[in-house]
Structures are given as C-alpha cells and as structure tokens.
C-alpha cells in the first residue's frame, strides 16, 4: 500500500515538473555577440565561435531546432579562416533545417567553392 502511494506521488510530482519546451536554445548568444561588437579582437571572436558551437550542442541535447543563422554564422567564421570544407558543411546544414535559406546558402557555397 505504501509503495503504491509513493509511486503515485512521484508520478504526480514528475508530471507537474514538465515545462513547455523552449523554441530555441540561445544560451548567451546575445551577450557574446554584444561583447564582440563592443570589444572586438580575437578573444571575443573566439568566444563568439564557442558560443555558436555550444548552442548547436545544447540544441541537439534538448532536441530543438538550432536557431536560424547559427550554422550559417559558424560557416562564415570557417570561410573567413579559409576552411572551405567545413564552411560548406555548415552552410548545407543551415539549408537543411531552414529551406528559406536555400538561395543565400547556395550563393555562399558557390562563393566558397570558387574562393582562392
């Protein structure tokens, strides 16, 4: 009898704990973007890159879509660092999740392929 009571209690408790899933996991996107604009320099740029990668990881863990533009921003960072292969991979990812980005991503992929 006691175990039944405990099980019921835990079930109700857990059900009450369920919160609605957030639409996107932005973490500290806004803050690191702001730091990059305010301070500039390689350190804040590296932090920006890290925050983008972290958003992707967290989104996968929480099973939510990666926010618009995150993959594209990361691809652009790689493009600027002359890492064409990874840049294209990230642009393709952006296209996959957001078909609205297709035109722009295709233009960027073209640019990446013909670069230097």
């Amino acid at each position: 009898m006691k175990t039944v009571f405990i099980v019921v209690f835990i079930t109700i408790f857990l059900a009450g704990c369920q919160t609605t899933k957030p639409m996107y996991e932005y973490e500290n996107y806004s803050e690191s973007f702001y730091s990059m604009k305010k301070e500039g320099g390689t350190e804040s740029e590296a932090q920006w890159k890290t925050s983008l990668e972290s958003i992707i990881k967290k989104s996968k863990v929480k099973a939510v879509r990666v926010p618009p533009g995150v993959y594209a921003n990361l691809g652009y960072i790689h493009l600027k660092a002359n890492d064409k292969e990874n840049a294209i991979i990230f642009f393709e990812q952006e296209k996959q999740i957001y078909p609205e980005a297709t035109k722009f991503m295709d233009n960027l992929i073209q640019k990446a392929k013909t670069k230097g």
């Binding site: 639409m23 932005y26 806004s30 702001y34 604009k37 305010k38 926010p67 618009p68 533009g69 957001y98």
Partner: peptide
C-alpha cells in the same frame, strides 16, 4: 548602431521568422 544591432535577431527569430544571420 553597433550595440543595438546585437539585440534584434533573437526576438524576431523567437517570434517564428527565419532570420538571416545578421553579421554575415
């Protein structure tokens, strides 16, 4: 201009639109 520009993307995306990456 610089500071304000960092605040617009997120709320628009959370409102359900596809937002192009601002920096890019």
């Amino acid at each position: 201009k610089d500071y304000y520009s960092t605040t617009v993307e997120m709320p628009i995306a959370l409102h359900g639109y596809y937002t192009f990456p601002y920096q890019l």
